[in-house]
Amino acid sequence: MRWHVRVQGDGLLAAGSRLEELAWLARDRLGDCARVPAGLRDPALREAVRALADLAGDLLEVLADDLDLLATKVRSGATVYDHVEGSVVRRGIG
């Protein structure tokens, strides 16, 4: 079986940074979710809006965790790639 792998270290690092920024953005908005039902008094309405806001908060938090994980994987992949590329260049292969 032949594997095809192509990597651009700089591009990976940029993508990792973007994912990290998005994770930060998602996490930054968690407080907004908690504030959505603020001031509502009707119990049924308040509960429904709170449930929607909780769900949005949970989703954003899980998304932030996921993006952090992906960013870490992508960055470490870029680091490994740079290391391999450096070795290849030093040994005059390819």
Binding site: V5, G11, A15, R18
Partner: peptide, 14 residues
């Protein structure tokens, strides 16, 4: 956009 950037820079199973 990020996914496009990633695909551009990195291909393979991972």
């Amino acid at each position: 956009v990020g996914a496009g950037q990633l695909t551009e820079a990195w291909q393979g199973q991972a």
